[in-house]
Design a protein around this nucleic acid. Structure first.
Length: 348
DNA sequence: CATGCGTGGGG
DNA sequence: TCCCCAAGCAT
């Protein structure tokens, strides 16, 4: 599944040109009619780009229109109060975008005397403008030859060139920005960037890419190999899950109930007290006595809460339990929390 | 570099 | 129900 070192296709100049030409031709015939694409006013382009960060056009468009009507210029936006701006932003989410928008409008109005910074490098210095937005404004408003790299472009490039490097990793960012730069048509950067994003959002879609009608199907690695579904590759976000382990300390005739863990889980093959896993700290059985404070045990993507309960008898359900003396247990391989608990138990 | 930040929609 | 995704950025 996960490939660490994969030799994806390195596009030749010819292939790079072909890709840009085909995508731009597709765009000319298939682009949606979106008002913010029909302006070169850097203020309006900036406004639309901020609103559309992590936001679908359908959701953001009404906000763009509202802001454009209410604040037609950067000075008008700068002159508003933060409350007015956030009131207009209400419901769109990611409210720091609204705060930064207002703040940056004031910087441009005052420090830049109302003149919008006109290069990728200068734009990047403004609050709320990162690499994507700087490239978007620089190319759309000023024709600078910089390639945008957003979620759509990641997807198009990953599929087209068969790149299965994790797009969230540092290595991935490098590979994809190199590829994006390589296929950019410098004389047509605005059109190229619009086209790449539109192509990704309308044809090379995440779930049902329209490969049958794709002008690049013959050069697309994912299409050749049927890997559209796997690309782009993102490492699964590791969510720290909380688990509650309850160990039952049961003594019978001087022997302790003790089990060997099966090999399909953590601590495979090690020994432990009979275990009940629940969803809370609460006692797992009606009559049992807590022997120690719950112990936190951190694994790579799990937080375990370990409890030890003294119990008179084993629940009838538990099977295949062995019985061992304290001396025998001492010699058995055990997980760290069990070892620690046993050590404490011996001292008492 | 991992995480938090919002809301709406789809599988 | 849950997870992923949508024109990312700041910390």
């Amino acid at each position: 599944m996960l490939a660490t070192s994969v030799s994806h296709v390195e596009p030749s100049i010819e292939l790079a040109n072909l890709v840009s030409e085909k995508v731009r031709a597709w765009y000319s015939a298939n682009q949606r009619n979106l008002s913010f694409r029909h302006t070169k006013d850097p203020y309006l382009i900036w406004l639309s780009e901020i609103i559309l960060q992590q936001t679908q056009v359908k959701q953001g468009l009404p906000y763009y229109e509202k802001f454009k009507d209410t604040f037609p210029t950067v000075e008008a936006l700068a002159g508003a109060s933060q409350d007015e701006v956030l009131r207009l932003w209400q419901g769109l989410g990611y409210y720091s975008r609204g705060r930064n928008l207002h703040h940056t409008a004031q910087i441009i109005t005052e420090a830049h005397k109302g003149i919008f910074p006109n290069s990728y490098t200068e734009l990047l210095k403004l609050k709320g403008i990162g690499s994507y937005t700087a490239a978007a404004i620089a190319s759309f408003a000023f024709g600078e030859a910089v390639a945008v790299l957003d979620g759509n472009v990641f997807r198009v490039l990953a599929r087209l060139f068969g790149v299965d490097t994790d797009i969230t990793s540092g290595a991935g960012k490098r590979i994809f920005s190199d590829l994006a730069a390589k296929i950019l048509c410098p004389e047509q950067s605005a059109m190229h960037n619009y086209a790449m994003m539109e192509f990704g959002s309308q044809l090379c879609k995440p779930h049902h890419p329209d490969c049958v009608n794709c002008p690049l199907q013959e050069v697309c690695v994912a299409n050749q190999k049927g890997r559209q579904r796997e690309l782009p590759f993102k490492a699964k976000k590791i969510k720290l899950k909380e688990k509650f382990f309850h160990y039952l300390v049961v003594q019978k005739d001087g022997l302790y109930a003790f089990n060997k863990r099966d090999d399909s889980n953590i601590w495979a093959g090690l020994y432990e007290f009979p275990l009940i896993e629940t969803l809370s700290h609460h006692a797992p059985l009606p009559s049992c006595e807590l022997l120690a404070e719950p112990k936190k045990h951190l694994l790579i993507h799990q937080k375990l809460w370990i409890h030890f309960w003294q119990v008179a008898e084993l629940p009838s359900a538990s099977s295949s339990t062995g019985w061992f003396s304290a001396q025998q247990i001492e010699t058995l391989p055990k997980p760290k929390p069990i070892t620690e608990f046993c050590a404490k138990l011996c001292k008492i």
